[in-house]
Structure formats: C-alpha cells, structure tokens
C-alpha cells in the first residue's frame, strides 16, 4: 500500500514540476506548482513527518503560491510568444540529453537498486510539534537566531529597493 502511494505521490510531484516548466501561461504554472507541493506533502506523510506535511500545505500551498498568483495577476503577465529553439540551444539540449542517458544507464547497470531499510524506531524531527520545537530551541538555537538576522536584512532590502526617496529618479 505504502509503495503504491509513494509512486503515486512521486509521479504527481514530478509530473506537475514538469508542467510548471512547460506551461506557457504563468497562472497555470503556479497552479501546477501547487499540485506539486501537495505531492511533496504526501511524501512527507509517508515518511511519518506529519508536521512538515502540514507546514508544506499551510505555508507553501496556502501562502506562498497565493502570493505568486497575486504578483502574476498584479503584473498582468502574459505567456507571450516563445522564440523557436536557436541552433546552439538545440545542440546543448542534445548533448545534455545524451549525458543524462549515459549517466542513468551507468547507474542502473552498476548499482541496480539502492539499499533500502525499514523505517526503524527513529522519531523523525518533523514528526510532531513538540519534538520539533525542542530541537529548534536547544540544538538549532543559533541557526534560528541567524535566520532572524536574515529576515531583518531582507526587510531592509525591501525598503532600500522599493521606497521612494527624495531627489531620486527611478529607472523607467
């Protein structure tokens, strides 16, 4: 059962990621991205990381994609015409595809499958809120503080790059 679900979610994620790249319309891409995130959160559930699965849906699917859609609609982005592949792009694409095939073939021939093991009695960090919070406030306290500074300079950056200042003429 878990295997079938894994393959289902994995194909959902990969398929919608491909759709994000190949869609002409930006709104469609964003919606395909949303489906991809749901697939990822399904994979997290299969790994017993329920908290991460919920966060994935709440934060990314809920807030971030909604923000993307807002911005796409605000800027009124149209798909536009795609120029046909130029010769160098086509050659580079062919070489890339050939390399990828060779690598995949080598991997399959030399290694076959990867070793897998049953999920043991390990409690994943992302399993429940209490365990996660314990880790954040003890072991990973320093990175959490650094992220605070990261958000601070991100906020400063928004001010610097978007606020109107006296006597400054912006690029049209």
């Amino acid at each position: 059962m878990a295997d079938i679900l894994f393959h289902l979610f994995a194909f959902l994620t990969i398929g919608s990621s491909v759709a994000v790249v190949y869609n002409h319309n930006a709104v469609n891409s964003a919606l395909a991205f949303l489906v991809g995130l749901v697939g990822v959160s399904g994979l997290f559930v299969l790994l017993d990381s329920f908290l991460l699965a919920v966060l994935m849906v709440l934060v990314y699917a809920g807030a971030v994609v909604a923000l993307f859609l807002f911005i796409i609609m605000l800027l009124d982005m149209q798909g536009g015409e795609r120029p046909p592949f130029s010769k160098p792009t086509a050659v580079a694409g062919l070489i890339g595809a050939a390399l990828l095939t060779v690598c995949t073939m080598t991997l399959i021939r030399n290694f076959g499958g990867l070793e897998t093991a049953e999920m043991g009695a390990i409690v994943p960090v992302g399993a429940n809120l209490k365990h996660y919070a314990d880790q954040l406030f003890t072991t990973y306290l320093l990175p959490v503080q650094v992220v605070g500074f990261l958000l601070l300079i991100a906020m400063l950056g928004v001010i610097v790059l978007s606020k109107k200042f006296e006597g400054m003429e912006d690029v049209k």
């Binding site: 992220v147 300079i153 950056g157 790059l161 003429e169 912006d170």
Partner: peptide
C-alpha cells in the same frame, strides 16, 4: 549552520548588488 549562514550572505548580496537602483 553552513546553509543558514550561506543564505544570509547570499540574501545580503542580492540587496547590495542592486543597491544603486537608479
């Protein structure tokens, strides 16, 4: 730790590089 520090550096540079936005 490595990734959080590296992202702080990179985000800072995103802003600094486009600082003269005129």
């Amino acid at each position: 730790m490595l990734f959080v520090a590296l992202e702080t550096i990179t985000v800072g540079f995103y802003i600094l590089v486009s600082y003269t936005r005129t």
